[in-house]
Design a protein around this nucleic acid. Sequence first.
DNA 1: CTATCTGCAAACGTTTTGCAACACG
DNA 2: CGTGTTGCAAAACGTTTGCAGATAG
Lengths: 126, 126
Amino acid sequence: MGMTKQRAAILSIVRNFNGHPTVEDIHALAKERFAHIGTGTVYRNLNILSDGGTIRRVQIPNQPVRYDKMLSEHEHIVCVKCGGVADIPSLELDLGKLPADVDVLSHSLFVYCICKDCLKQNRRPD
Amino acid sequence: MGMTKQRAAILSIVRNFNGHPTVEDIHALAKERFAHIGTGTVYRNLNILSDGGTIRRVQIPNQPVRYDKMLSEHEHIVCVKCGGVADIPSLELDLGKLPADVDVLSHSLFVYCICKDCLKQNRRPD
DNA sequence: CTATCTGCAAACGTTTTGCAACACG
DNA sequence: CGTGTTGCAAAACGTTTGCAGATAG
């Protein structure tokens, strides 16, 4: 996996981002360093980095993909009002209820809530 | 919510479908009854029916939306090879680990596996 | 020197939307 | 009659891809 300047920059953007950046977020920051970097390059590198396990892809239903620098096991909680995403510890899943012969590979779990900020502003879910 | 013939047909297609149809599946079946029904009509009606709680939307990351006639609480298991979807009983979620002041509204859980058919054919995940 | 990568632009698959004509109560 | 719906076509959205030239090792 050759580390081009662009790839290294994209990785460092994800690692330094406070939260779970979308491709758009990452592209905007990358443009500060490479004025002419295209979306193709950003998408391609994020795919390479996440396929290689260097970063993690976070695919929330109905939202553009986000990326996560945190590789250790955890889940995500999503505000239904503002779309904000936060990390939560991984919740125990009782897989004992599954048919015995099913071989579980992985899972994807999102917990939906209204975050404190949105509660304060008295917003309600759509 | 006025029940047009098209809306009623779409609802009955979802209710009679064995599994979790995509919009494409539903559209194909709807065309048997209304040769000129458009995708717009199908999407619009599925949105209205699921927003109203008559059917359930199943949004698996990286797949087109599916719909589910089953309204009672359950989760879905997805084959990473063939994309097949099956119902599984709702798994206990230990929400005790969440920050105390967070108000959970709902969650979305997908368990990924290789289904029996794909195992038989010795397929492996991508 | 060659394999890989870049920027750009076009294409992709899914879903939504604008609109004039139509159906229903 | 008027509100809500249809069919159609075009647009929107996020993402991928083809390509010719550039870069890394």
